[in-house]
């Protein structure tokens, strides 16, 4: 008898390969973060659709521009990081405060049990990015803004920022596991959820990710929901509830982009 039984070929690897092909197609056609575009560009995507057209009209009373992110499952984290840093480069004292928090975050994650050797790699890159977009850097605001845009479209840097935010999110879930357990459907433990849905790259974000990240960094986010729901107006939700938003995002089922208020 043949000592090894082949089980329909190596299915896991076939599935992984297929996923990689789709991802490559997306990455070849969409930048990680786009230029600022007029909000009205959304009309073209929903032409002939009354519900969406009415809602975009409503949204355009409050927002002038949108910045698109690549739909790779990391869009929430990438949009969050870009938008928050954009706010921080024009707010020196908030920038300094965030820099200090970011500096100290590594030690906190090590205490929560993250492996310090690999954490260090992500943290160093994260701090380098923060340093490169300091409001005090030479060239002034527009040079720093250009630098931010450049960094976020360099896959290596951009993805390391996403990884580090995922780790901060995962750390927060662990730190307040009793609270966040309430948000998890089914019988997944927080531990399993962190390893399946938070730490791996390309996994989409849900409310629980948003709440944990905003809370960990003390950064308010307003999300505008553009969907098929009734009412003709776009519904907004602030995270954490009652906070002053610094980051504005638009959510369309499955995807986040950045918004710019009037």
């Amino acid at each position: 008898m043949e000592p090894f039984t082949h089980n329909d070929g190596n299915r896991d690897e076939l599935i992984i390969q297929q996923k990689r092909d789709i991802e490559k197609e997306i990455s070849d056609t969409t930048p990680l973060i786009s230029e600022q575009l007029p909000l009205t560009c959304l009309y073209a995507e929903y032409s002939g659709d009354e519900i969406f057209t009415a809602k975009i009209q409503d949204l355009s009373k409050k927002y002038k521009f949108i910045r698109r992110t690549r739909p790779d499952g990391n869009c929430f984290f990438r949009a969050f990081a870009y938008s928050y840093l954009e706010y921080l480069i024009s707010n020196s004292s908030a920038y300094q405060e965030f820099k200090k928090l970011a500096e100290e975050s590594k030690e906190k994650l090590v205490q929560l049990g993250f492996p310090s050797f690999t954490l260090e790699d992500f943290h160093e890159t994260f701090m380098e990015v923060i340093q490169r977009v300091s409001p005090d850097n030479a060239g002034g605001h527009s040079a720093v803004q250009d630098e931010l845009h450049k960094i976020f479209n360099e896959q290596g840097y951009s993805d390391y920022v996403v990884v580090y935010l995922r780790l901060i999110t995962s750390g927060k879930l662990q730190e307040e596991a009793d609270f966040y357990q309430n948000f998890i459907e089914g019988d997944l433990t927080i531990e399993a959820f962190r390893h399946l849905e938070v730490e791996p790259m390309y996994k989409e974000s849900d409310h629980i990710h948003i709440i944990a990240l905003c809370t960990a960094l003390g950064a308010g986010v307003r999300v505008e929901y553009l969907d098929r729901g009734e009412g003709g107006t776009v519904k907004a939700h602030d995270f954490p509830e009652g906070s002053e938003p610094r980051i504005y995002l638009i959510y369309r089922p499955g995807h986040y982009d950045i918004l710019y208020p009037n």
Partner: peptide
């Protein structure tokens, strides 16, 4: 049979850490 390994951390539980 080809030596490939079915282990969750090499698939859906991979963490960059």
């Amino acid at each position: 049979a080809d030596g490939g390994i079915c282990l969750d951390i090499l698939q859906n539980r991979w963490s960059p850490t």
